[in-house]
Simulated assay, not measured.
Amino acid sequence: MADLFTHIATVFIILKLLSWKTEFIEDKLIPVGMIGAIIPDLSRLEIIIPSPIIEQLGIHYTWFGLHTLVGATITSIILTLFFEKQHRTKVLILLVFGVISHLTLDFFLISPSPEQYAILYPLAWEPPTIGIYLSTDKIPAILTGTAATTIILIEKTRKNKRQ
């Protein structure tokens, strides 16, 4: 769970800082980017509904595709369809931003092998991992949580000064 929190908090931090500089990113849409950061980890549904169960229905399927740039982007496009037409462009950009942030942070994970998963599948490019932290490490979650809390406090201070 520390890894998931880190993905969500990182997107919050970046989008909140960007929202201070640009009108494109509205505060009410920041959670959309945070949802985008969750999309690649939908592949963990494999734990609850293993692929062989789906394959018994006659459908060849693997959850792994959700944890690739292509699979997560397709999922983002599908999710965008649930929003009103005038918001879809922003929503898609924010969802894909969350996806890219997630996959970028995953480059820093310590992998049991020297190769990373095929993040850019179907190109099957498997870049080496940088290997800074484990997905179970709590330090990244503590750092991003502290940064997010600091940003919230700064924003409250800024709002109080304007009033």
Results as ranks from 00 to 15, higher is better:
Ile139Phe: 08
Ile38Pro: 00
Leu103Ile: 02
Leu79Ala: 14
Ile47Glu: 11
Ile151Asn: 01
Ser113Asn: 13
Leu109Ala: 11
Ser51His: 06
Tyr117Thr: 10
Lys85Trp: 09
Ala118Glu: 10
Phe24Glu: 12
Arg158Asp: 03
Arg158Cys: 09
Ala147Gly: 02
Leu134Trp: 12
Ser111Gly: 00
Phe12Ile: 02
Thr150Asp: 00
Gly65Phe: 13
Ala148Phe: 15
Phe82Tyr: 12
Ile49Trp: 03
Gln86Asp: 07
His67Ile: 02
Leu81Gly: 14
Leu57Asn: 07
Phe97Arg: 02
Glu26Ile: 03
Leu81Met: 13
Lys156Leu: 13
Ile152Val: 14
Gly58His: 08
Leu153Gln: 06
Thr75Ala: 15
Leu134Arg: 12
Val96Ser: 01
Ile152Thr: 03
Lys28Ile: 07
Asp106Met: 00
Pro127Arg: 09
Gln56Phe: 07
Leu45Cys: 05
Asp137Ser: 11
Leu57Met: 10
Pro112Ser: 10
Val96His: 03
Thr144Cys: 04
Thr73Lys: 02
Pro128Ile: 12
His67Glu: 11
Phe82Pro: 00
Gly36His: 01
Glu55Lys: 11
Pro127Trp: 07
Gly65Leu: 09
Phe83Tyr: 10
Ser111Cys: 02
Ile78Ser: 09
Tyr117Asn: 11
His87Met: 11
Asp27Trp: 04
Ile77Met: 11
Leu120Thr: 14
Ile47Tyr: 09
